[in-house]
Amino acid sequence: MSTFQYYRPQRFEELWQLMVEYNNAFSLLAGGTDLLVRLRKGRTNSRALIDIKGLQELHGGIQEINGGLRVGALALMGDLVDDARMQQHFPALVEAMKWVGSTQIRNRATLTGNICNASPAADTAPALLVYGARVNILGSLGERTLSLEDFFLAPGRSALNPHEIVQSIDLSYPETPNGSSFLRLTRRRGFDLATVSVACLLIPEAGRIRFGLGAVAPTPLLVIDGSGVLTQTESAQVAKESALAKLAERATPISDVRASKEYRQAMLFALMSKAQHIASERLNQSRS
């Protein structure tokens, strides 16, 4: 690994100064599980690593806010999956986080880090998208909030400006009743990068279904059908399939070392229908 300067600011003022000083040639370090791999492979040329774990304000963990939960920037996935409130309200996200790496990785990796990398295959992104996550951003010039959908710009590129960081992620409790699910296709059963991943949130009373799609487009995708076709059990199978197919068309998968474009496209549809099926089963269970 090439050498670099290491900083661990205790105050935001120091952070902003360092960001200015290193003008883009720095990386922010939280869990580091992705960053260290990139550094070792020479994929970033940061001259400085700024460790944000010294900033007490980011250690908020999980807080209840009005009608939802706020996940602090440094909250570990290993803790989030064990949290009863997360399990109750955001089961698809908990399932997705359980797929992130191994126990060891989840003990170090943060949910925020997972989205800040803006990887199209980020495991948590599809679930966060269906739950309508909002990203709270803090910069030297002030705060702003973006929907997660607007946060992802391109592979590896988020809407964060060079002098901004993600402070927390807000999740509003979804309307009830609802059903949600997360599915993921991999090359083996043990932990693996996703070939395709799909999260689904079904809200029958609004006639709305939301799908988050991973690894099938330059960024994680959110697709929504509000027609009710996919939330009503009585809809004709043909109508359902055609609605799903229409949603799946938004994806633009590529071929890579993990799968071909064709396989991804086909699997996306298969996973979406399965995810929808599981979500409606869960919905029924919650009603009974």
Binding site: R188, G190, F191, V257
Partner: peptide, 15 residues
């Protein structure tokens, strides 16, 4: 294209 543990998959305990 797939040298290393990330993209060369060997069976894990779950396999």
């Amino acid at each position: 294209r797939n040298a290393g543990a990330l993209d060369y998959r060997i069976p894990t305990i779950k396999d």
